[in-house]
C-alpha cells in the first residue's frame, strides 16, 4: 500500500532536504572547473539517491527496494573506480 502524501512523516521531509542538497550539488556537476570535480559531485549525488530509496522503501512498506539500494551502491563503487582509472590513464598519456 502506497501512502498518498509522504510529507505527513518526518522522514518525508528528510527526502525533501536530500533532494535540495542534490540540486545544490548539481552546480558542481554542471559548472565544475575540472573533470574530477564533476566525478566527486556525481558520487555524492548517488549516495544521496541510495538513502532516498531506502527511506521510500520504509515509508511505502515496499521492502524489496532495499535490495535495489544495495545494488545501486555497488554499481556506484564500480563506476567510481572506473572513472578514477580513466583519469589516471588520461593524465599519463598527455
Amino acid at each position: 500500500m502506497v501512502e498518498e502524501n509522504i510529507l505527513v512523516n518526518p522522514f518525508g521531509w528528510g527526502i525533501m532536504v536530500l533532494i535540495f542538497t542534490s540540486v545544490m550539488l548539481m552546480y558542481r556537476v554542471l559548472f565544475g572547473p575540472t573533470l574530477p570535480d564533476r566525478v566527486v559531485g556525481l558520487n555524492t549525488i548517488t549516495t544521496k539517491v541510495v538513502v532516498i530509496i531506502a527511506i521510500l522503501s520504509v515509508i511505502n512498506k515496499q521492502y524489496f527496494l532495499i535490495d535495489l539500494a544495495v545494488v545501486l551502491l555497488m554499481v556506484n563503487a564500480v563506476g567510481g573506480l572506473i572513472l578514477a582509472k580513466y583519469l589516471e590513464r588520461r593524465g599519463r598519456s598527455d
Binding site: 574530477p36 578514477a84 593524465g91
Partner: peptide, 8 residues
C-alpha cells in the same frame, strides 16, 4: 578519485 586527480 584523489589519486586519479593527482595523476590527472
Amino acid at each position: 578519485i584523489a589519486k586519479g586527480a593527482y595523476k590527472y
